[in-house]
Design a binder for these strands. Structure first.
Lengths: 233, 233
DNA sequence: ATAAAACCATGATGTATGTCAGGATTCCTA
DNA sequence: TAGGAATCCTGACATACATCATGGTTTTAT
């Protein structure tokens, strides 16, 4: 039985919350950001950012849930789920190639702030603490991606799905029982397996009393068991 | 027939050269770095950095070739190859958790500069251009990791190995014919497949006149063909 | 309200690739 | 320079998982 603020440690699929970088701004700097940002609401399924397109802003998810994914040919790889507090587009801060290197779309209705990229760059230049915070965020993202990378390449389906479920419970919904706004197909994309395998494996987890699932409502009743499955591969 | 300075574009496995961040330092700042760094030589196979251990420096590869890898249980995932110019340990700049989040070891005899991490932090704080350059590097690493991630999860063995070979030729050795300091087992680790599969696939590539390979010497004779294999999966 | 589309579910089948076993070659060391 | 270890290579075998097919259910849209 873990506390809500101390989620289970898994390889994890999702971004942590990190708006803390803005805490290091002065009042004027914060005002500058406020002046150079707009808030946009995206409907479920809408594309928030498109890989390859020019970008003039960094995105911050305020409400909702977004999928950040890499596209190549007709196939896609989900890089992470962006929950409220996540920044999207930090990899496009490079002056030389200001295009999005991945796409993002809304899993559910999602509110996003678009912050002017040049303002962002300016603040990095003039506020060392802010810059350091951004570097922290990039570092955290990198570490998390390594873990997810490991998970998807070294585990087999049971482990991948167990990891994903623990992650959703621990980091996104922050409770053991939640209504999943994702389809099995989307779970499959996240876990890097086929939709059918997800369904079969979910069934297995139910038979083994690790979870219950009626439709979209999922409850994790044996997190330790799931964790063990993660660790065994 | 591509120019040496314009390597083939692949998902790639290796880090690009990027020392450019130091170009933005003032003479005093550069002197400060010089004063707070040591140079260390590692023999082939030696561990340069160990995941989980405390770190007080950022590493820069000067000569040689290093493997950057993530460890979990007995299994490992290679994150990238660090060629001269690569920085290792940027993800440990966070004040809160100054441990290495991955290990590094020397593929061949390798010279590394250890730069004091607090000096590094100080320079990020006081030199916005330097900070921006570090953010660029982290961003580039992230983009590259996405591509490699995609490659390893979405392609099958032929595509993965073809990609790796093009990468080694294009980005590490920068020539179509090179003496590979890696074993088949190490190639397998890099491509995320079994040693036997690497050997079999290499044989297939030879039969198809895509490469030649006597022992450690490998020549890519049909890069376009290999690239096509990458793209087809 | 009803049609269409998407989603969920389950069984049958195929295949890519890992694993195991064995032998040949190369590399290292004492 | 010999003996042992690591590496390289090949074949046989096993299997996890994707794919395909089909039908039932839910959601969406008009």
């Amino acid at each position: 039985m873990q506390a809500e603020d101390e989620p289970i440690k898994t390889s994890c699929t999702v971004a942590h919350q990190h708006c803390k970088c803005f805490d290091f701004l002065t009042d004027e700097q914060r005002a500058l950001i406020e002046k150079n940002r707009v808030t946009v609401e995206f409907k479920k399924g809408e594309i928030i950012a498109k890989q390859g397109s020019f970008t003039s802003y960094v995105l911050m998810v305020c409400e909702g849930l977004a999928k950040v994914y890499f596209e190549d040919k007709d196939d896609t790889l989900i890089l992470r789920i962006a929950a409220p507090g996540s920044l999207i587009g930090l990899t496009s801060l490079t002056k030389s190639s200001n295009v999005f290197h991945y796409s993002a779309s809304a899993y559910v209705d999602t509110t996003v702030k678009l912050i002017d990229i040049n303002t962002f760059r300016q603040l990095i230049g003039e506020n060392g603490l802010f810059a350091a915070a951004i570097i922290d965020i990039l570092g955290e993202n990198s570490i998390q991606k390594n873990e997810r990378f490991y998970c998807l390449t070294h585990r087999q389906s049971y482990g991948k799905l167990a990891d994903l479920l623990l992650c959703l419970a621990g980091n996104i919904f922050r409770t053991q029982k939640f209504v999943l706004p994702l389809t099995r197909k989307e779970l499959a994309e996240l876990a890097g397996m086929s939709t059918e395998s997800v369904i079969r494996t979910m069934k297995k987890f139910q038979d083994d009393k690790l979870i219950t699932s009626n439709g979209k409502t999922i409850e994790i009743i044996n997190p330790e068991g799931l964790l063990k499955i993660c660790e065994l591969g």
